[in-house]
Write a protein that binds this DNA or RNA. Structure first.
Lengths: 157, 157
DNA sequence: GACTTTATGACCTTTGTTGACCTTTAACTT
DNA sequence: AAGTTAAAGGTCAACAAAGGTCATAAAGTC
């Protein structure tokens, strides 16, 4: 019953489980070979099963010695980030709301003071406006990306 | 898995590490020989891995007794830092150059690992392209803004 | 039967590697 | 001293080795 995509997914997750680095690295060709499938099937599995919403991040490199790197995201206890991230999808975020959000996250010790300053500085209207058609949308997109990356299991604070 | 270019890079960096002059001198032919590769492969490694953003300078001399000199550039603490960075960043900044620069600043302990990940995540092509008329220009502007803010006296690492 | 999910193959982009040919410079000849 | 030769390093185009994309076919689902 279990189809190919499910089996590949299961395999990757089991390997990832044992990786104490928080990520695994492997080659697409190798995977395609072990599962006797088209290389692009691997991409299908990665894009449908290893998304940020499901708690994973995928990086890759082409060329000789290329690889895929699948990174596990530690899900925060109350799913706070999840909700925040969901909110920010397709959303617009003003500078004011962004600043409030960042301050709050700093208070909750999700961000350090330096990180908060850093993030605010680049999300500022002064930087984005006049360069971007919709600064508010880009800001939301960036904020979401930051939240995702702050959950990466391969960076131990 | 790991390709030749990466291994040569690693070797050169390890030698550079032990050099207390801040630079090393060696011959292209000798290197090509030790790694059993085409001499031009050495040039490839030098131009892709030992760039200014990554903190290196390469000088060379042809003819009999010719050599390669790889110099590690330190970030001098007194003031010139900002100017150097502004120069390095310029008006436009590609994702690749940005990543190299950020990695380098992390090595120099100007950024923490988390900060490096955070900055790279929002400067990614995936985030900026298709949203911004000139992603490269915005990226340069953001990178400069980050550096200014990270050097504020009121926030120590 | 219509719709959604899964699977494949053809074609593309990026990165790495090699070899043929070129330029520069020290050392050697005369 | 001038010219020649040999010993470096430089360039570039072609090829190899990865991963990416997208249209479309096949298989499930309801």
């Amino acid at each position: 019953m279990s189809n190919l995509a499910d089996r590949i997914e299961e395999y990757l997750k089991s390997v990832l489980e044992q990786a104490d680095e928080g990520y695994i690295m492997l080659q697409r060709g190798f995977l395609a070979n072990t599962f006797s499938c088209a290389p692009s099937q691997i991409n299908y599995v990665l894009t449908t099963r290893f998304t940020a919403e499901r708690g994973y991040l995928v990086e890759s490199r082409r060329g000789g010695g290329g690889y895929l790197r699948i990174i596990r995201l530690g899900l925060d206890p109350e799913g706070k980030f999840q909700r925040l991230m969901a909110e920010l999808i397709g959303e617009e975020l003003s500078q004011e709301r962004a600043n409030n959000l960042i301050d709050r996250l700093e208070e909750e010790e999700i961000f350090t003071k330096r990180e908060a300053v850093l993030i605010k500085s680049i999300l500022a209207d002064r930087i984005l406006t006049d360069w971007v058609p919709s600064a508010e949308m880009l800001r939301a997109r960036m904020m979401k990306e930051i939240l995702v990356n702050m959950c990466r299991d391969d960076i131990i604070i």
